[in-house]
Design a protein around this nucleic acid. Structure first.
Lengths: 220, 220
DNA sequence: ATATAAATTTAGGCAAATCTAAAAATGATT
DNA sequence: AATCATTTTTAGATTTGCCTAAATTTATAT
């Protein structure tokens, strides 16, 4: 349980996200790209993290998190999503504005603070983007993984989360006025490009299949 | 308005506190001691901060903050005290527990976050230790600087703050159950050592002159 | 299968923040 | 005023995280 540097934490997080839930082998270049750094720099850090026994790493082969590395990564993710929830629910930020701040706040070291923050927020299970918040044991809550492109015409749904949380997508749906919890009715689906006509807040408009595939929903 | 490193921020804060409100010249050694570092290290940083025009510094003479350095230091202090207020009032930490966490939180960069936090807390003017929180222009609220050792016998007062916020003192008054806002009645003052007998929460006990001198109060 | 391309690592360096040891300046004392 | 003690600075290293350029390994494609 050595205390990690901010940089080390960011590397673990990057490996966690690229590796996905199945903990795939991760390429050096992928990490470099995600962290806006150079492959040579990543190699240095991988050697260091391996030496700390946080990752598996074989030169030229790739890397994956070991148990302790994963625990750390999930811990950081937990803090990130709790702080995002705080920023949106208590400080009234828009859900597209909070990522930067949460990137800083997630590195605050105090287990007690994290747990009290969670309690203060009412032990939330999903953050403002609809992403699941692992509990302090690192266990994720379950959620239906249905996206808007999967539903049939004439279905009413509620928006539960976004799959793609890039600024571009968040801005796009902010422009449409879509928020978590909003109700959307799918009117029709275009055969040609799978785009859909939806009714939302008394307005009808068209959504591309790509946009729809990035909205997690619950059928009503 | 160059963004400062965490370390640079800590140096400015140290100079601010040692220099006091009158912005006295500060010795290299005093800074080293406060930051648990070595004088040589401090010299390096002073050269750097001077080069950034944040401080006045003449080798062997000492240093003091320039306007921009002071603005930065007060900005950090504002964040520190707002976060402390948050931790105590919203997360129910004891006021002796929060310093460490606030030391980390004070470096979070986002003016918007700071202002929203202040609003969320109801624009507090004093933190849980009773210390004044500068507003976003850097102006401190005024407060009576009366300490408990200054009042005459048979006076009722309210605790407004602590002058010495060392862990030792905070623990001591926590043990006595003294909290901000508490009412205390001074029963008598001992000629010999200026110690006082006080009534507090239906109990009578004796406080040393030293302890009393570290409690800011308001007469009722 | 061999050449070429792509990915990765190694080598050598740089900047920030730190340290120890030695040198220099300041201040205090007789 | 000369000496001694203290404070401060300089010099030279170290660690962390990063870089570029060159070398090496792996993958791809004729």
């Amino acid at each position: 349980m050595t205390k990690l540097s901010l940089t080390e934490e960011n590397y673990l997080k990057a490996i966690y996200f690229i590796g996905g839930t199945s903990n795939q082998l991760v390429n050096t270049n992928a990490i470099a790209e995600r962290l806006n750094t150079k492959a040579a720099t990543v190699t240095d850090m991988l050697r260091k993290l391996k030496q700390k026994d946080l990752i598996e790493y074989q030169p030229y082969k790739g890397t994956r998190l070991k148990l302790e590395g994963k625990v750390q990564a999930i811990g950081i993710l937990r803090k990130h999503r709790l702080w995002e929830t705080f920023l949106v629910e208590k400080l009234a930020f828009g859900w597209e504005e909070v990522h930067e701040m949460a990137e800083q706040l997630e590195h605050i070291q105090s287990a007690e603070l994290t747990e009290r923050l969670s309690a203060f927020l009412g032990f939330p299970e999903f953050d403002p983007h609809g992403d699941p918040i692992p509990n302090k044991e690192g266990v994720f809550p379950r959620r239906d993984n249905v996206t808007l492109d999967r539903v049939s015409p004439d279905t009413a749904v509620m928006v539960q989360g976004v799959k793609d949380s890039s600024t571009e997508f968040l801005n796009y749906i902010a422009k449409l006025g879509i928020q978590l919890g909003d109700h959307i009715a799918v009117k029709s689906v275009e055969e040609f490009d799978r785009s859909l006509v939806v009714e939302h807040k008394n307005q009808q408009y068209r959504l591309s299949a790509l946009a729809a595939a990035n909205l997690y929903i619950k059928e009503l």
